[in-house]
């Protein structure tokens, strides 16, 4: 027997992942958005939280978001393998084993909730636990493959972080933190449906019942328009309730009108290249919209 015969070729082993693969499991781009919105909630609460505790709380929230991302990738590996955009993720590409991603996600989820509870209180920790459960179990395992309303209800998971930040700083749930929740909640459907209009075929092939696939593009355009009206109004609400200042109120009004104008363009342009570029413009602007609103809230909150 030759030496190569007794030594198993290591190439045959899966699970030989690089550090970058574990980072990818945490969905760092989603995580950065979670940290940013949680920071806004934390700062605006004016709870007199010590900077070190604030940092530790944000880190816990970030780890919780990463845990949810890892569990999502564990469950969705079969879909990811079928879509060009996601086929190179660590699990479908075979660099990390499915069970390893599950263990990674569960350990980080438990650790993040325990840490946040010890650092900043159990209301915030409870909200974080609920958010992870909502995203990983309710959305990923249930809604996503079952109903066209998947992202409407699932959007709540993305909307919780500012409330968690607020609860970490104050130990309470304030009206303002609920408004921050509502902004992200109503922003999510038009944001994802604009993307779904562009990626309809991919979603259909992967068997995900996104609204354009199930109800058609025209119905999607109508729903985008309805939610955009709500976003434009809710976006101004922090100023109307007297939480945010004049600068925020003015900017939110202007950006809200622009959001609505782009949604109307999506609604009117239904065919060909014009329809594609209208959806692309709304998608790109929606990201900027949310970022600018929260950035101004953050700056106003730091004064």
């Amino acid at each position: 027997m030759s030496a190569t015969g007794t030594a198993r070729p290591a190439e045959a082993l899966s699970g030989f992942a690089d550090v970058a693969d574990y980072v990818a499991l945490l969905k760092p781009r989603v995580m950065s958005l979670v940290v940013f919105t949680a920071l806004v909630g934390l700062v605006r609460a004016h709870g007199g939280i010590h900077p070190v505790i604030g940092f530790a709380a944000l880190l816990s929230i970030a780890i919780g978001a990463g845990a949810a991302g890892s569990l999502n990738m564990w469950w969705d590996a079969d879909i990811d393998a079928r879509m060009a955009r996601t086929a190179q993720r660590p699990i479908p590409a075979g660099r990390i084993e499915s069970g390893e991603a599950l263990a990674f996600g569960v350990v980080l989820a438990v650790a993040s909730v325990a840490m946040l509870g010890l650092f900043a209180g159990w209301l915030a920790a409870g909200l974080l636990a609920f958010t992870i459960f909502f995203y990983a179990v309710l959305y990923t395992m249930g809604l996503k493959r079952w109903t066209a309303q998947n992202i409407v209800i699932g959007g709540a998971a993305g909307a919780f972080p500012p409330m968690i930040g607020w609860a970490a700083a104050t130990g309470t749930i304030g009206l303002e933190s609920v408004l921050l929740f509502l902004i992200i909640f109503f922003w999510t459907p038009p944001h994802f449906w604009a993307l779904a209009l562009l990626r309809k075929k991919e979603y259909a092939r992967a068997g995900i019942p996104m609204l354009p696939v199930v109800a058609g593009e025209d119905e999607t355009r109508r729903q985008i328009l309805i939610y955009s009206v709500v976003v434009a109004v809710v976006g101004v609400a922090p100023a109307l309730f007297g939480f945010a200042g004049l600068i925020y109120g003015t900017l939110a009004s202007m950006l809200g009108v622009l959001f609505l104008a782009l949604a109307i363009a999506v609604w009117r342009k239904r065919r060909g290249v014009a329809a594609q570029s209208a959806a692309r413009r709304l998608f790109a602007f929606s990201v900027l919209y949310l970022f600018l609103l929260f950035a101004v809230l953050l700056v106003e909150g730091m004064r």
Binding site: A10, E11, F16
Partner: peptide
């Protein structure tokens, strides 16, 4: 001779050793 060869077990490639080292350092 055969026992000696068996003890070799799994042989990692240079790339796999590099990745394991990177993971250890990161941890």
């Amino acid at each position: 001779m055969a026992a000696k060869q068996k003890r070799k077990g799994i042989v990692l490639s240079a790339e796999q050793r590099r990745r394991r080292r990177a993971r250890s350092i990161a941890l």
